[in-house]
Design a protein around this nucleic acid. Sequence first.
DNA 1: AATGAATGAGGCTTCATTCAT
DNA 2: CATGAATGAAGCCTCATTCAT
Lengths: 206, 206, 206, 206
Amino acid sequence: MARGAALSPRKKPRQERSRQTVAAILGAAAQVLERCGYAGATTDAIAQRAGVSVGSVYQYFPNKDAILVALVERHMDEGSRLLAGMLAEVRGKPVDLEALIRRFVDAMMALHRNDPKLHRVLFEEAPLPASLRRRLQRYEDEFAESVASLLAELPGLRMESPTLAAHIVVRSIEGLIHSFVLHPPPDIEPETFCQEVVALLVGYLR
Amino acid sequence: MARGAALSPRKKPRQERSRQTVAAILGAAAQVLERCGYAGATTDAIAQRAGVSVGSVYQYFPNKDAILVALVERHMDEGSRLLAGMLAEVRGKPVDLEALIRRFVDAMMALHRNDPKLHRVLFEEAPLPASLRRRLQRYEDEFAESVASLLAELPGLRMESPTLAAHIVVRSIEGLIHSFVLHPPPDIEPETFCQEVVALLVGYLR
Amino acid sequence: MARGAALSPRKKPRQERSRQTVAAILGAAAQVLERCGYAGATTDAIAQRAGVSVGSVYQYFPNKDAILVALVERHMDEGSRLLAGMLAEVRGKPVDLEALIRRFVDAMMALHRNDPKLHRVLFEEAPLPASLRRRLQRYEDEFAESVASLLAELPGLRMESPTLAAHIVVRSIEGLIHSFVLHPPPDIEPETFCQEVVALLVGYLR
Amino acid sequence: MARGAALSPRKKPRQERSRQTVAAILGAAAQVLERCGYAGATTDAIAQRAGVSVGSVYQYFPNKDAILVALVERHMDEGSRLLAGMLAEVRGKPVDLEALIRRFVDAMMALHRNDPKLHRVLFEEAPLPASLRRRLQRYEDEFAESVASLLAELPGLRMESPTLAAHIVVRSIEGLIHSFVLHPPPDIEPETFCQEVVALLVGYLR
DNA sequence: AATGAATGAGGCTTCATTCAT
DNA sequence: CATGAATGAAGCCTCATTCAT
């Protein structure tokens, strides 16, 4: 990891062609990371798979890690859109606990189903720069806070601390689904699994 | 990572001196991995910290991966001893569900508290050879099976599938504690957290 | 540096606009060379500072060397105009030795004062193509010859060889002023320095 | 040029073999620099000419510039030994001005005769780190100071400022010989040239 | 067995130059 | 003609591994 160096994209693509190139690079990086892991994702491999030359990669990203960061950000954006959407949707009309949890589980499942391996490489294997790690942390904390306030408003739940409960909820959903998607246990259908996760948390909160 | 190469220690250390050297190398590798991450753990760094020369490292390990594998095995051994001990202890006398879960949680906590960072590097960041990954998987499955049969014997639990339940239990404990140790949420004591995890699972199973 | 390639400007700028562009590029190259040294003077940097695209640079110069060569030629032209002017002025009316040397020193000082750093980069740091180096050499020899014949005509000088004397004169003036401008010794005024150089050479020739 | 980075040798060679390797690398670097200039002196070229692999180069030098620095230091050492020796020799017994200057000229000639092109590349073409440039400057100033005090003690010299005179002496000798060695003017023998330089300075100082 | 010097493939990055728009 | 995106050879450097001592 380049320390303190520029990690943000180098140049905003002005022409249409450039935007395509950047997209191709990010897509290629995702594929290569998924297939070969962090160590195997060389800049040459990424460029080749993107169908461009290394030079083009460096026209838009100051170094290899910047590609990674861009990818993580793309994932974070997607994730936060999904979760924010879910929260907004839920906040409006009153829902019962089970429906709430189920939505949450579904959203998380959707988030992980796309490319679970890439997710793993990106968030576990890759040595992300500290700043990005902090942002991730902050983001997860905020999300947990939202869930906490949501739980606090639900009637009929006995909790000592909504914050603690929210943490447990957020992290067990995240952890369970992550592990399920990455190492699916034999003979268990996703739907069955999701129902069980919902049962786990409803039992906990009620 | 050299794939498909020999990964088992090159030579069984027969003499005392050799055994010490191997231990020193493994200890050094653990420290370096913890401090510098996977990328920073060069063979030179490990050798230096172990107080031996690179040549000596290759006297006992055929390649860098083998060190990593040995380290993972050491951790697995420790873990399986801990968990097996717990299972044995529990199997003898009848315990109630809560006590059972609590023991499990405590064991897992003990497993992670030692050097959480090393654990993370070893099991998430490092690109373990496929064979080892399979062994880890198999081991976890076996453990889940043990838990399943244990649960099946407990009276008063309504479960559709002990296997599924065991999976949920094993993975949520593992996931929650892992994340708690690595990214401790603000203002939450370990003890409080453990109690909450227990509550989560007891609520689920009962 | 591409050796043996075409080094003369690719296309004579016929139109006003082109001439401006070429001038802008040369000016930019001078600035960039001065600020960033030879290594830092990339074609992109030059184009950017000139306010044109790299493509445009290559419209007028077949390669990077050609820019450098043009710049050196510009400097040589300026220098030879200055020195030729001085020689012409001196040849007409009879001057005494001291005035002659003083003029020479002043001209050389004027030549170096403008942008000493650029001068250094251009003539020392940059790997000029051999052909240009030869031209520079030839030019300096011719100039020394002129000085030699001038000295030969001056009465009252005892010299074994006007050629040798001229060489000594030309090169010591050049060398002293070059070094003075680039690494000014502490607490010495330019004027004082010039007088001293004059004294040196007058003492030598008389 | 690596900024602020380590430029001093990486590892003191302990074994005899290492010392040979370091010597070979420095020698090779000198040759390559001389033949190919700064730009052409790639690490691979140096390693190849030294008969070792790139890796070996980096075992002893942290980066390419460190080789250059070592070379410059070697030259500086040689130079300062030569000049210091000359100064010491001269300080003891009383010498007349001409003999003094002559010694100086001879020493400088000796310094430049070895590998004049390398000298040029090293001190003019190569972008030396600022710290080294300062050391060079300081060294040259000290030497000029020594010469100044030497001159101050000589009887029968009329100088307004020994410091200024010393500067003129040091720099004109250095400049003239440098240029003579690098671009020898046609039909002038070194001995003739040296005598002329001596004449120049004796005429100046007396 | 131990040492540490030597190896060299391979990764990251730059930048002169070309070319499609 | 101008633009700036694309190219890719080539340079620097690292580090797992081997080998002479």
